[in-house]
């Protein structure tokens, strides 16, 4: 069969996963891959290839039309509704469209993952301002997203994804709105997290990033996944 057996060393595992939206064509066909714990991968492919869709399957916003998605050793199709929050808290996501809450300040947006996990204000005050400083947003700590530039919003989204030190970080075009210097700085943040044990998957078009950071690539094209290729 050539299919990978369940491996608890894998943070994410796809077995023959297919995805179609409604009655449309299959966007993803027969996808098989695994992300070993502690790995760092890029996810590439032309626009519309299904990168965001594949990430959605991992962060449990979308169910596969067929096949099996395993997250932290748990078959996501078998996971009950009440198990999902605990699984999702282990995953940090930088959404392509940010999904910031417009009525909350930068600080409160970034603090969300801590708060939904039950953290107190002391913890929020201890970690959030430092991280915002690191991503260069300390002057906008009380600003609301609608008053921020695209690049600033992107950095808020990244800070929110990493604040709770997730076991798995999924980033969807995290550098699409910033210049190369800031992009590299953000990538170092991901690398630091990766060194601490976080498994990272970054979907990007940014060729210079891909060539500067030597991480294996998963390539999506015509519904099929190629790779990982170094």
């Amino acid at each position: 069969m050539g299919r990978k057996t369940p491996n608890h060393g894998n943070v994410v595992q796809f077995d023959s996963v297919g995805l179609r939206y409604d009655h449309g064509p299959e966007i993803l066909q027969d996808i098989n891959f695994a992300l070993p714990a502690g790995s760092f991968h890029f996810l590439t492919g032309p626009s519309g290839a299904g990168k965001s869709s594949l990430l959605r399957l991992i962060y449990l916003a979308q169910k596969p039309s067929r096949g099996r998605v395993t997250l932290f050793g748990r078959d996501t199709l078998l996971a009950r509704r009440y198990e999902l929050p605990a699984l999702r808290r282990r995953v940090g996501v930088v959404f392509q469209e940010f999904k910031l809450l417009d009525h909350l300040s930068t600080l409160d947006n970034v603090a969300l993952p801590l708060r939904v996990a039950g953290a107190g204000e002391a913890e929020v005050q201890k970690f959030v301002p430092d991280l915002l400083d690191w991503v260069g947003l300390s002057e906008h700590i009380h600003a609301k997203p609608p008053t921020l530039s695209g690049g600033q919003k992107q950095r808020v989204a990244i800070a929110r994804a990493v604040i709770a030190r997730p076991d798995l970080l999924l980033a969807d075009e995290p550098t699409g709105n910033v210049d190369d210097d800031i992009a590299m700085r953000l990538m170092y943040l991901f690398e630091e997290l990766n060194k601490l044990g976080t498994t990272v998957l970054v979907a990007t078009h940014n060729q210079s990033l891909i060539s500067r950071l030597q991480h294996p690539r998963l390539h999506l094209e015509n519904g099929a996944l190629l790779g990982p290729e170094p």
Binding site: R81, L84, P85, A86, K99, L101, V116
Partner: peptide, 9 residues
């Protein structure tokens, strides 16, 4: 969004 971030019902 709250759900995706891991908020319980």
């Amino acid at each position: 969004v709250l759900h995706l971030i891991g908020a319980t019902d």
